[in-house]
Each structure stands twice: as structure tokens, then as C-alpha cells.
């Protein structure tokens, strides 16, 4: 049933691909967080222009499928005179832009849940808008929205399987290549599924752990 020698032989390649998937997803997520916080702040800004720009960002990057965004970044941007981007760069940019749109909406909810009086207190004590954002709003928004944020992280890691379309040797791409040469489709894709679980199960666990630890102080 299960071809162990072939499986063991494929392990080094899969492990390498795991690193690529992790790197791409985590760096993409990190930038996605920054974009998300920035866009959420724009959406809640008193300035109408900023609010509209934030809204437009979410409309575009939440509305267009990630696959299409990736193709756009990798194949179309160089056509209009921008420099060629390596596959990993295109993958990270794509994941960051898309996750930024989702994270922005999560953070917007988190920001709105913070009682306004806390921000008045910060303002009166002389904290700058930047200090209020980083010291008061973001730490609380993360606590308030942790389940949704972990959910988004897991979704993004799974969605990173799409980066194989720009030729990046991530888990999905490598598994496809392996299956094409060993013809063990079922086994190879089963192993692929397990690899994704290998990332996401600990991530979910980490999320619950954080929720419990932060819950004590919030």
C-alpha cells in the first residue's frame, strides 16, 4: 500500500519545500500585519480621503482571487516596465497584499472594540498617535481578535499552495513534481496534506496557548 522507500527518498525534497512554504508564508504574514494595521487605521481615519483609499485597497485585494493577484504580480508587472521579480519575491508580495486586506478588516473590528475613553486618556496624558497605536490599540486589538487572526494565518498558509503558479518550489509544487515522476499520486498528496497539518496544528495550538496567557491580563 504505502511505498516507504519512495516516501523516505522524497523526504529531503519535501523538507526543503516545507522551509520555502514557511518562509514565504511567515514573511508574507509579517508584511500583511503591517499592511493590515495601516489599512485598518486608514479605514477609521477622520480624513475621508484616507478612509476611501483604505476601502479601495480592501475592495481590490479581498475581491480579486489570490491566484490572479500572483499571476498579475509575476507576469504582468514586468511587462509594464517594472523590474523582474524572483518567484519568491512575487509570492511574498502577493501573500502580503492579500493577507493585509483580510487582517485590516480583523483589526478594524478590534480597534472599534476598544472603549473610546481609553484613547482619550492616552491623548490627555500626551501619548502621540503613534504611541497610542503601538502601545494601546494594537496590543489590545491582537488580544481581542486572536481567534480570527490565527484563523487568518492558517488560511494564508494553506493559500500559499497557490504560489506554485509562479514557479516557486513550495510544498505543493514539489509534491506535484514528485507525483509526476513516481506516479504515486495518492500517497504523495497524502504526505503533502500531512505536511500542511504539521504547520497548522502547532499554529492553532500556539494560538490557544496565547489566548489563555493573554486572557489572564485582559
Amino acid at each position: 500500500m504505502f511505498d516507504w522507500p519512495t516516501f523516505l527518498e522524497s523526504l529531503p525534497l519535501m523538507a526543503q519545500a516545507l522551509v520555502v512554504t514557511l518562509q514565504t508564508s511567515l514573511v508574507g504574514l509579517a508584511f500583511g500585519f503591517v499592511i493590515g494595521i495601516a489599512v485598518a487605521s486608514m479605514r477609521l481615519s477622520p480624513t475621508p480621503l484616507l478612509r476611501r483609499l483604505g476601502g479601495a485597497y480592501i475592495f481590490v485585494f479581498r475581491g480579486v482571487p489570490l491566484l490572479v493577484q500572483l499571476l498579475f504580480i509575476y507576469y504582468l508587472l514586468p511587462r509594464i516596465g517594472l523590474p523582474n521579480i524572483p518567484p519568491i519575491g512575487a509570492a511574498i508580495i502577493g501573500l502580503a497584499l492579500a493577507s493585509g486586506a483580510y487582517i485590516a478588516e480583523i483589526f478594524r473590528g478590534g480597534f472599534l472594540a476598544i472603549p473610546h475613553g481609553q484613547l482619550e486618556a492616552a491623548n490627555l496624558l500626551g501619548l502621540s498617535p503613534w504611541q497610542t497605536l503601538t502601545r494601546i490599540k494594537v496590543p489590545q486589538a491582537i488580544r481581542l481578535t486572536l481567534p480570527a487572526l490565527v484563523n487568518e494565518m492558517i488560511l494564508l498558509i494553506k493559500a500559499s499552495s497557490l504560489v506554485s503558479v509562479v514557479g516557486l518550489a513550495d510544498l505543493t509544487r514539489v509534491a506535484q513534481n514528485l507525483a509526476a515522476s513516481n506516479y504515486l499520486f495518492l500517497q504523495t498528496y497524502l504526505v503533502l496534506a500531512l505536511f500542511y497539518c504539521l504547520i497548522n496544528i502547532p499554529l492553532a495550538g500556539l494560538g490557544s496557548l496565547l489566548e489563555r496567557r493573554l486572557g489572564r491580563s485582559a
Binding site: 481609553q118 482619550e120 496624558l125
Partner: peptide, 28 residues
């Protein structure tokens, strides 16, 4: 030169009592 105290306290729930008092001392 003015300090204010609110009906709803408006402490920052993610910081300890000491953290609340020290925040502006450090940052401002």
C-alpha cells in the same frame, strides 16, 4: 498642566496598575 479622571476609569486593561501609571512617564 492638567490631569483628568473619568467616570469609566479608562485604565488600559492590558497593562498592570504600575504599567498604567508608568506608561506616560516613560513615553512622554
Amino acid at each position: 498642566s492638567l490631569g483628568m479622571v473619568f467616570q469609566q476609569f479608562n485604565l488600559w486593561p492590558h497593562m498592570s496598575a504600575l504599567g498604567n501609571v508608568c506608561e506616560a512617564l516613560v513615553r512622554v
